[in-house]
Nucleic acid binder design. Structure first.
Lengths: 334, 334
DNA sequence: TTGTAGGCGTTATCAC
DNA sequence: GTGATAACGCCTACAA
């Protein structure tokens, strides 16, 4: 059976003490140049790799950050993970990825497992079921910093990095209006996310800014499941005065909306203007892509969230006021 | 600053020794029922969580498996990760995910980082640059089992779980021929993957089975990058006698091929039959989806690979003969 | 400049 | 049935 090299082995072969080896390896100031060299040389020769489990144990730090997202199938989150990993790995931190699959139960399990594994910090995009945050508060209480990504629970005081969806919604509404639309629908996401509320406010303020009355009938909420998405469009289209343009919470929602319109409302579909959030690259392969999309910056969001979290992780005793950072979206035409 | 509860704390409050507490917590046979109860009760009350870093250190096991894939943006791998995670978490193992981004350098780094973190086993889909496997062999030599996923280096003796791409290619070719095609092109992936070679053999044998001569000119190889993909189609289409149907290494390749054909060969495009591997769900949103796709079973592949790896991890001294497992694909019509 | 000793939390061995 | 003790690999006061 294979047995990894330890500093003990090095110490023994060199006839010096383990502490000297340890110090030499860590480039400690008061170690003789020759000793340092001898140690480093032998370490390299023996292919010594520090035992991280021992270091983690000793230092009470795992150099591991957790990230919990709803699903890896959504490219927004995958790309955010990439941004996060970039920052983390630059700081020599590992990343533990968990998917809640939009289940609160699973999310709690993940938090608990990660807690047990002593992660040093957590980045999380809460599930759509997450209507309370006891599990996150508990982490925080144990001294593990928590930062939210994209989705933040309303009325909670976690730091959060997300898109400036408010501004984006106003931009979209303005574009619709400049193209002559007066009846503009909106299919929103779950109302217990701040990011849904912000989209809504942007939509409403966009209308008001252009002196168009806000009509509650034109606003639908969906849990982002296909069935719900399609129900929402249908309700809008069956209004006495249906919308001629619709703003959508997300591009994935767009796929369902487009199929539904094409099948069930073929007469209105060709003139319908749609804008979603996300700017999925796959639309460029469509023969008739949607009008536009609000392009977010998931990679940068992951990076910012990573920096914020690392900042907190690396200064444990410091008090941090919750920060709300939002990065701009850009109207993207296909 | 927060300080986690340890068995020491429990021992002290209960005026018993740490070893008794440890045994009670682990349901050791020779501990009195009452003692056991008292310990368990107090542990629950104090919300004691075993320090995994200490256990990892003590047991020389991390209960962590690594998985390295080219990218999380490819849903084949994401879904495989999910299958893998299911199996791993059932066995109480964590999963460390790494993306090589098709870079051998990055892949080696990941392997080395994971090695340093003392993962108990590794599942890997090698990058497209991976033409040797010293880094994987080294892992294996240190007693860390390695299993390949989907992509296996040719002439190497790792266990591998993948799709039965050979059978699938023959099925696709048969379908083409039953639709009257005689000139059938093939755009393949990198030739140093066994999975490319197998696809090729299936394609060739499919032709021969139907007494159609194999024509080397109709076979192209691409590194799966957009530029290369489009080059490959163009070369095929500019042949004196171009193909009327094309088999593609992968559906992501399909997207590039379709755009290219639509733009540059609008005359031939409508009658061109295309079949890829993967059956991406997004095609169902297309107005003119491809003829069909060879639907793989990434989730099941992840599961099988997970079971295989766990088997090896949990029986360290046992010798395992490399296994090649391949799961069937199914022709999927859009 | 180098060495000694103690300890991080847990488990395992062995004595009582 | 319970307890004392050593050990895992590493780091770090502190002593020499």
């Amino acid at each position: 059976m294979y047995k990894p090299i330890t500093i003990k082995d090095i110490a023994k072969t060199l006839n010096i003490s383990v502490s000297t080896v340890s110090k030499a390896l860590n480039d400690h100031p008061n170690i003789g140049a020759t000793t340092k060299e001898r140690v480093l040389a032998l370490a390299a020769k023996l292919d010594y790799t520090p035992n991280k489990t021992a270091i983690q144990f000793k230092q009470q730090k795992t150099f591991t950050l957790g990230i919990i997202i709803p699903t890896l199938l959504d490219h927004f989150y995958t790309i955010a993970v990439n941004g996060f990993e970039k920052i983390a790995s630059q700081a020599k931190y590992n990343v533990l990825i968990g998917q809640s699959h939009e289940s609160l139960r699973r999310e709690k399990e993940l938090v608990s497992v990660m807690h047990g594994n002593r992660i040093d910090g957590l980045l999380i995009a809460i599930s759509k079921e997450t209507d309370h945050t006891d599990h996150l508060r508990k982490l925080k209480r144990s001294g593990i910093p928590v930062v939210c990504l994209a989705r933040k629970p309303v009325n909670e005081t976690f730091s959060c990095v997300s898109s400036d969806v408010y501004r984006a919604a106003r931009d979209a509404v303005s574009l619709f209006i400049s193209r002559g639309h007066q009846r503009i629908g909106f299919i929103n996401g779950p109302s217990h996310w701040a990011t849904s509320r912000d989209r809504f406010l942007g939509y409403r303020d966009g209308l008001l800014q252009h002196k168009i009355a806000f009509d509650q009938q034109l606003v639908e909420e969906s849990d982002l499941g296909t069935a719900n998405n399609q129900q929402a469009v249908k309700r809008l289209m069956r209004l006495p005065s249906p919308p001629t343009a619709i703003l959508l919470f997300k591009d994935y929602l767009m796929l369902d909306v487009m199929s539904c319109l094409r099948k069930e409302f073929p007469a209105q579909y060709p003139n319908m203007d749609l804008i979603g959030y996300g700017a999925l690259p796959l639309f460029s392969h469509f023969e008739k892509p949607p009008l536009a999309s609000l392009k977010e910056q998931p990679f940068e969001i992951g990076e910012r969230a990573g920096s914020l979290l690392l900042e907190m992780v690396q200064h444990p005793q410091q008090e941090f006021n919750p920060q709300l950072i939002s990065l701009p979206c850009k109207l993207h035409y296909f």
